[in-house]
Write a protein that binds this DNA or RNA. Structure first.
Length: 106
DNA sequence: ACGGTGACACCAG
DNA sequence: TCTGGTGCCACCG
């Protein structure tokens, strides 16, 4: 069954391959709620930093890091985590999503 | 049960 | 291109 939107979201994000990214709306759609993109962000925001969920692989549909900064998860941190995996991130926190997007033919 | 919240997405000007 | 406004809906107190 569904198992809950939250669990599905975390499950899906956990399956994103290293060096790949997905958008919030993409995660929402993959979990059966195409218009619940905002909730995906809210769920990740509530997750502890040590949850093991690769939250940094989730960006917005424009390929831009859309995080609101906090001490555990900031734009700069997300940028570093992505670059460490080989994903190019510009100084404006932009990613070539057409090149790195996971689960969608390009 | 109910209303505020927001790590989005999309559209108008 | 950029800014601002609006629709969205699961989560939390």
């Amino acid at each position: 069954m569904t198992g809950g939107f939250r669990e599905q979201v975390l499950k899906f994000i956990s399956r994103i391959p290293k060096g790949r990214v997905v958008s919030y709306s993409q995660v929402a759609a993959a979990c059966g709620h195409p218009r619940a993109a905002r909730q995906v962000g809210g769920i990740l925001r509530a997750e502890p930093d040590n949850s093991g969920v690769p939250w940094w692989r989730v960006i917005n549909n424009q390929g831009i890091i859309s995080i609101k900064g906090s001490w555990t998860a900031s734009k700069e941190r997300q940028r570093e985590l992505l670059m460490k995996e080989g994903v190019e991130v510009s100084e404006n926190f932009e990613v070539d999503i057409h090149q790195y997007r996971y689960g969608q033919s390009q």
